[in-house]
Amino acid sequence: MPLLMLNFFIAAVFTLLLGSTRISAFIVGFMLGYFILWVSSPLYPDTRYFKKLPKTLNLTAYFLTELLISNFRVAWDVITPGHISQPGIIGVPLKARTSLEIFLVSNLVSLTPGTLSVDLSEDDKILYVHVMFLEDVEQTRSQIIQGLERRILEVTR
């Protein structure tokens, strides 16, 4: 990812040129640097930086909204008297192969909607997930595969 480093470098230089220590200057510098690199993109023929950054932002936005939604749901179950939770453990077949991908999938599963990764099978192919609000097993399984894993694989591959 040399282009990412270059982009950070441009942002840092921009911040220093302004003589500012505010973080908003750095963000403006980063966007300016991204624009400069995008204009000069014919110079770097085989880079996927310009495709990957929007996808990373997409993953981040999806992750943050899911984090908020899941928290309000858990909070609702905690505050109201009586329990609405229906816990269960399901196995999710993974398409992720490298250790970085498996790490990302299991970590993000732990941080998103009422799911918590419990165990990984011996051959690293099935991730066992504890789900707090299990209404439909197949639907929850495809939600993890389609919603989360697909977005992660788009970034890493």
């Binding site: 899941s70 909070a75 941080l111």
Partner: peptide
């Protein structure tokens, strides 16, 4: 919450 694993849901995420 009723058991260890559901308690962990609240502890990690919230």
């Amino acid at each position: 919450l009723p058991d260890t694993l559901t308690r962990m849901h609240a502890a990690t995420k919230a």
